[in-house]
């Protein structure tokens, strides 16, 4: 089975799991009393946000290792992770305001968490634009690695921004030093969603990596290392 086929199957399993998350979240998870049904956006928004951050951490780490090892597989992985991270960031930046309107009374506010997340999205877009603009594969990989490392430095700031600044954004209720402050049934739905997003990330990145591999083979770039 080719890499692209493996990626397709993992993606399909991820999509089926996500459908299961929809059923569980909408029909079998209790409605939060203060926020109402809009609270259920949390089950999609937070796993997507975690994978947006994790994807950029992996892009940055791959960039650091690429600068030392010059292994094109690391560059291909970084490119794949960045593209998938951009998709997840788009989900974060659309579901967040949809939750914010009924809960905060506004679609958007320029607080530290929201602004830094928007900046991360622009960094992702910039990363993809740089990759598209530079023809020389080695130069492209080097520029992209530097941008990825900048993104890696930004992620801890985004995650800690709710502690460092006075923000409207809620404090973490799951990914924090103490135990999750969420009832068991809600936590189970969230963990199910995190598993679905993890499968989607792996499936998407596998397919995107296979695509880069095929393109490189076609163009004869990095052929020795493929």
């Amino acid at each position: 089975m080719s890499l692209a086929h493996k990626g397709r199957w993992i993606t399909l399993v991820g999509l089926v799991c996500l459908a299961g998350v929809y059923v569980r979240a909408l029909a079998f998870t209790p409605v939060e009393r203060l926020q109402g049904p809009a609270q259920k956006i949390f089950y999609l928004h937070v796993p997507a946000a975690l994978w947006t951050e994790a994807a950029m951490i992996l892009v940055g780490l791959a960039g650091i290792f690429y600068l030392f090892l010059k292994d094109p597989r690391l560059d291909r992985f970084a490119a794949a992770s960045a593209e998938v991270g951009t998709v997840f960031a788009t989900i974060v930046l659309t579901t967040g305001p949809i939750w914010g309107k009924p809960i905060w009374g506004t679609w958007w506010t320029w607080d530290a968490r929201l602004t830094s997340t928007l900046f991360l999205f622009f960094l992702y877009v910039g990363y993809l634009l740089v990759r598209g603009a530079v023809r020389d594969p080695r130069l492209r990989a080097r520029y992209a690695a530097v941008l990825g490392i900048c993104g890696l430095c930004l992620v801890p700031f985004i995650h800690l921004s709710v502690f460092l600044f006075r923000t409207l954004h809620p404090q973490p209720i799951i990914v924090k030093p103490s135990a999750p402050s969420l009832p068991g049934s809600m936590l189970a739905t969230w963990l199910f969603s995190l598993a679905a997003f993890t499968l989607l990330y792996v499936g998407f990145v596998t397919q995107r990596y296979a695509l880069s591999l095929a393109r490189d083979a076609q163009q004869g770039e990095h052929a020795d290392h493929a």
Partner: peptide
């Protein structure tokens, strides 16, 4: 709002 967010994500 919840339905909109779920549709947009899908």
């Amino acid at each position: 709002y919840m339905v909109a967010a779920y549709i947009v994500t899908a």
